[in-house]
Nucleic acid binder design. Structure first.
Lengths: 340, 340
DNA sequence: TTGTACGCGTTATCAG
DNA sequence: CTGATAACGCGTACAA
């Protein structure tokens, strides 16, 4: 790092003290207009660029947010990251984006890096299998606020933002009911995830709302692999009375399920109707697509999480009695019509 | 930021000087084993975490890389970002990931932020329309090395890593020739992009290699919008002799082109064969897909760019006579067979 | 082998 | 309104 122009240089050239220069640059009210002008003019002329590293150090603030997501290639998180980033930028903050790749140990290391770098706050979508929230509790104990997104914290007291999975599942299911379906199956997510449970509850709720009895055999868990979805679909389709519609947990589950039908029950493709979470732009290009998608407001989730985080950062840290927030953003039902 | 444990605290408790502690923690050879042990033990016990902000300031190094890409939702860049990140992590570096959204002014601001934050190096995929490289030349002049990826720098002296677009286009075209096609069209990218030109050249080269005359009317530029692709396809298909195969510039161009056929020439879908750049995982799920895809090694591109950057960072900056590198990573042809 | 002293660039405090 | 000075946490010559 080549040594750049510093306020010291400016002060020297102007025969002023560094403190005056600093204040002028920071628009301190106690500086005369004239002085302020001169300082700023010279600063521009010399191409002065403040050394944030020094500021951070001095102010004991990094003006940086840490963001931990499982996978950047998952649009859901990528979009959420955009929401975080945009909000951060508005507040003059940078974001360090990291991926856990669903690896708990990697997540531990990431948290450590964030502490070392003294980020001012962390937004995290915790790994699927994590059981203890220890590293995040450590962050809190150090005074670095944490906001969870998408995946509910397993324990402890954390702010939490997600889409309203329950209501989204209700919407999806009721949409299919509205289309006249009565035997509606659910390809449920991994049982260990709260998200799966919430969507499952919504599915059952919708059935109940319309007087349709819940049938255990119509719900199958998937592990988010193609093979897992195929196996689940096989069990569903071999039932004495197979479902006529299916509510799915996620994008790729929907696509794999449709692929299964294409392969083994080609006559039923486009007969069995799907509605699921996640709305990929690519759906446009599919011949056999879900009837509708539940679009999760992941951008807004990122925004909201960042907003909450900034509030926490602004707080004094000494309020021992915080109220932790849990906010559920509404989903939207998007119907895929073929007309264009 | 709550004040954490510092080496000063450790020194006090151990009745040593801070410098001893600092050296012990950094495994300085001049420290006795005993002292070193005691320091490290207490450090662990007190949960000491080095303040990187202070180190960065002191060392005039941020151990941070700046990465600027157009859009994180574009898999090509997201994967490249992973390559950068992984290499950075191996070197104990963080990455600040930013998006220009193809907005030149935003890119200018981003560069400014990076300077303020004293990143040690920058990797950038410059915006499509940029004409002057001024901000990046500024980075170089300050002593912050820059490596361009994916998109060739418009001017000046920069290291540059990309996929081998020329050879990739040759592969794509020859693959179609091998399938017996003679009237092969090219949906070319925006004429202003060097990438478009390189692929166009490759396309022509392949034709020449096999004695097929190049026909001007078989190449159409697209602007990467759906409407633009539709218009280009219309012109191609209305030719007296429409093409029997098409080499496309990018993922979504391929998909839109196929959609066009589905809509206006349904009898020709699956007759007109495609091969294009970009291999999206989603292609699996399509009924009508390109015959093959050119997979660009974008992960490796990110890795390579980071590697070069670290070399530059290691250099003394005072070598006025640098040799700038331009490396072209090979592409792979992936044939999409339907069997599974 | 250990300690002393200094400085990195900035801001805050307090005195003038 | 301006200036002198201390301090942030750390690393490093140089002295002991």
């Amino acid at each position: 790092m080549k040594r750049g122009v510093t306020i010291k240089d400016i002060a020297k050239k102007l025969n002023m003290s560094v403190s005056t220069v600093s204040k002028a640059l920071n628009n301190d009210v106690s500086i005369s207009a004239l002085t302020s002008e001169r300082v700023k003019a010279l600063a521009k002329q010399l191409n002065y660029i403040p050394n944030e590293a020094a500021r951070h150090f001095k102010l004991a603030k990094s003006f940086t947010l840490g963001l931990i997501i499982p996978d950047i290639l998952d649009q859901y998180y990528a979009v959420a990251a955009n929401g975080v980033e945009e909000t951060a930028e508005k507040n003059g903050y940078n974001v360090i984006l990291t991926q856990s790749h669903e690896d708990e140990q990697k997540e531990d290391r990431i948290v450590d890096v964030m502490i070392r770098n003294r980020v001012d706050g962390v937004i995290v979508s915790i790994t699927k299998n994590r059981t203890d929230m220890q590293p995040f509790e450590k962050l809190l104990s150090i005074g670095i606020p944490v906001v969870c997104i998408g995946r509910e914290p397993k324990s402890g007291q954390f702010d939490y933002v997600s889409s309203n999975n329950h209501d989204g599942a209700v919407m999806a299911t009721e949409f299919l009911i509205g289309k006249g379906h009565r035997r509606i199956a659910h390809l449920m997510g991994p049982a260990g995830m709260r998200t799966s449970q919430a969507r499952f509850e919504g599915y059952k709720q919708a059935l109940a709302n319309h007087g349709i009895p819940f049938r255990n055999e119509l719900t199958e868990c998937v592990d988010l692999t193609r093979a897992g979805t195929f196996a689940a679909m096989q069990r569903l389709m071999r039932l004495p009375e197979p479902p006529t519609a299916i509510v799915t947990f996620k994008n790729y589950v929907t696509l794999d399920a449709i692929d299964y039908l294409k392969k083994y029950y080609p006559e039923l493709v486009d007969k069995v109707q799907f509605t699921g979470f996640g709305n990929l732009p690519i759906l446009h290009h599919l011949d056999h697509k879900p009837l509708a998608s539940i679009e999760e407001s992941s951008f807004e989730m990122g925004e909201e999480a960042a907003r909450i985080l900034f509030e926490r950062i602004g707080e004094d840290g000494e309020n021992t009695e915080r109220v932790y927030r849990s906010s559920q953003l509404p989903c939207r039902l998007v119907v895929h019509d073929d007309g264009e």
